Simulated assay, not measured.
Amino acid sequence: MAKRVLVLNGPNLNMLGTREPATYGSQTLADIESLCKAEAGKLTLTVEFKQSNHEGELVTWIQQALGAFEAIVINPGAYSHTSIAIHDALRAVALPVIEVHLSNIYTRESFRHHSYVSPVATGVICGLGAAGYRLALHALAEKL
Rank of each mutant, 00 (worst) to 15 (best):
S80I: 10
L29H: 02
E57T: 10
K3C: 12
I105P: 03
L102M: 05
I74C: 11
N104H: 06
Y133M: 02
P11L: 04
S26H: 00
G132F: 00
A139M: 15
T28P: 08
H54W: 03
R108L: 06
L13C: 06
T107G: 14
A71E: 13
N53V: 14
G17V: 03
L135D: 11
I62C: 00
P76H: 01
G67T: 03
I32M: 04
P76T: 01
I74N: 06
E70G: 14
K42V: 10
G77Y: 01
V73G: 07
A68M: 10
D31I: 00
A30Y: 04
K37V: 11
Q27N: 13
E109D: 14
F69C: 08
M15R: 10
F111M: 06
A22F: 03
A136H: 07
V93S: 09
L29M: 11
V5L: 13
E39L: 11
A71D: 13
T46P: 04
Q51T: 02
L43K: 06
Q64P: 08
K42F: 09
A94R: 13
L6K: 06
E33R: 15
C36D: 07
K143V: 05
H101N: 15
H138N: 14
V47Q: 01
V93T: 08
I98P: 03
L45N: 03
R134H: 15
Q51K: 10
F69V: 01
I84L: 12
I105A: 02
N53M: 14
T28D: 01
I84V: 15
L43Q: 07
T46G: 07
I62W: 00
E39D: 13
R91L: 03
A89R: 05
I125C: 11
Q27W: 07
G123R: 09
P96Y: 05
P96L: 01
A94I: 11
E142N: 11
T23Y: 05
K143E: 11
T82C: 10
H101W: 04
A2I: 08
Y79L: 15
A89F: 03
S110N: 11
A121Y: 09
K37F: 04
V47G: 08
V7L: 04
E99V: 02
A94P: 12
V93E: 09
I72F: 04
L29S: 00
I84D: 05
Y79A: 03
A2P: 15
V5P: 14
Q63F: 12
L58N: 09
N14R: 12
A65C: 10
L16G: 01
N14P: 12
G56A: 10
S83F: 01
A130S: 13
A78E: 11
V93F: 09
A89I: 02
A71R: 13
T23S: 14
G129S: 07
R112C: 07
E57W: 04
L35K: 12
S52H: 12
Q63K: 14
T44A: 15
T122V: 00
H138P: 04
D31Y: 00
G41I: 01
S115V: 06
M1A: 07
T44V: 11
L6A: 08
G41S: 02
H87Y: 08
K50F: 13
Y106S: 10
H113R: 12
K37A: 14
L95F: 06
I125D: 09
A136K: 02
G127E: 06
S80N: 12
A89V: 07
P119Y: 04
D88I: 02
L102V: 00
S52A: 13
E39H: 15
R112M: 06
Q63I: 10
L102I: 01
E109A: 12
E57P: 02
A94F: 12
K42H: 13
G129A: 08
